[in-house]
Simulated assay, not measured.
Amino acid sequence: MGSRTAPEAAVQPTPDTPHGGSTPWYEGSLWWDAKSVLVTRAVGPGTIATTPHLVVPAEFGRLAFLLSSYGAEAQQLADDGRVVIQSGDWRGRPALGSRQHYGIARVIGDAQLAARMREGMRIKYGARTTLARMAHRFANGSVPYGDLVALVELLPHQPLMLTR
């Protein structure tokens, strides 16, 4: 699978509020407040799949989540990046009152960006990241966890067909 590069400093997950009175860009972000996101993607002709992910907001209204390079989802998103994103609760179900957003996901294989993402996840979710890593290890063995980043750019409110 080929990797794509991200713009420099595209993801800044540090939630420390500056003491100068200005508020950080992520404050009040739908994606900072989301407990999870549901990512719906095309997996074949006329077939879609929905997967819950832990997420951190990225600059310019984007959001980012981690993927494994050995997972089918990473390959599917690299082939066809069209996704439907919806804010979810801590169980991975649609959050009450949330709506679907259309977007394009880019899969990025940058180790430094993945490390910043893992740190952002640790800051936002705390112990949930440890539980997610343990669940991944239990389900997939020694397959790497979170070595790829999916960076999603949201599109205006227009229908985006997920079938091929």
Rank of each mutant, 00 (worst) to 15 (best):
residue 23 T to W: 10
residue 157 H to E: 15
residue 128 R to M: 05
residue 26 Y to Q: 13
residue 129 T to Y: 01
residue 156 P to Y: 06
residue 157 H to P: 05
residue 126 G to E: 06
residue 68 S to N: 11
residue 151 L to R: 08
residue 77 L to N: 11
residue 127 A to E: 12
residue 38 L to K: 09
residue 21 G to S: 02
residue 47 T to K: 13
residue 116 R to N: 13
residue 45 P to V: 05
residue 77 L to C: 10
residue 54 L to S: 11
residue 55 V to Y: 07
residue 64 A to E: 08
residue 129 T to K: 04
residue 25 W to A: 01
residue 139 A to H: 06
residue 50 T to I: 02
residue 59 E to P: 02
residue 95 A to T: 07
residue 50 T to M: 00
residue 47 T to W: 01
residue 155 L to Y: 01
residue 114 A to V: 03
residue 149 V to S: 05
residue 124 K to V: 09
residue 124 K to Y: 03
residue 94 P to E: 11
residue 92 G to Q: 09
residue 77 L to M: 15
residue 116 R to E: 14
residue 71 G to C: 06
residue 10 A to L: 15
residue 109 G to W: 03
residue 125 Y to M: 04
residue 46 G to K: 00
residue 135 A to T: 04
residue 139 A to I: 00
residue 30 L to R: 15
residue 142 S to N: 07
residue 40 T to R: 15
residue 85 I to E: 03
residue 51 T to C: 06
residue 77 L to P: 12
residue 26 Y to F: 15
residue 62 R to T: 00
residue 19 H to R: 14
residue 124 K to F: 01
residue 63 L to C: 12
residue 52 P to Q: 08
residue 72 A to D: 15
residue 18 P to V: 06
residue 61 G to N: 13
residue 121 M to W: 01
residue 123 I to T: 06
residue 114 A to S: 14
residue 61 G to T: 05
residue 42 A to Y: 00
residue 1 M to C: 07
residue 113 L to T: 01
residue 17 T to W: 09
residue 117 M to F: 05
residue 85 I to C: 00
residue 83 V to M: 03
residue 103 G to H: 04
residue 36 S to K: 02
residue 59 E to K: 10
residue 164 R to M: 10
residue 45 P to Q: 08
residue 1 M to G: 14
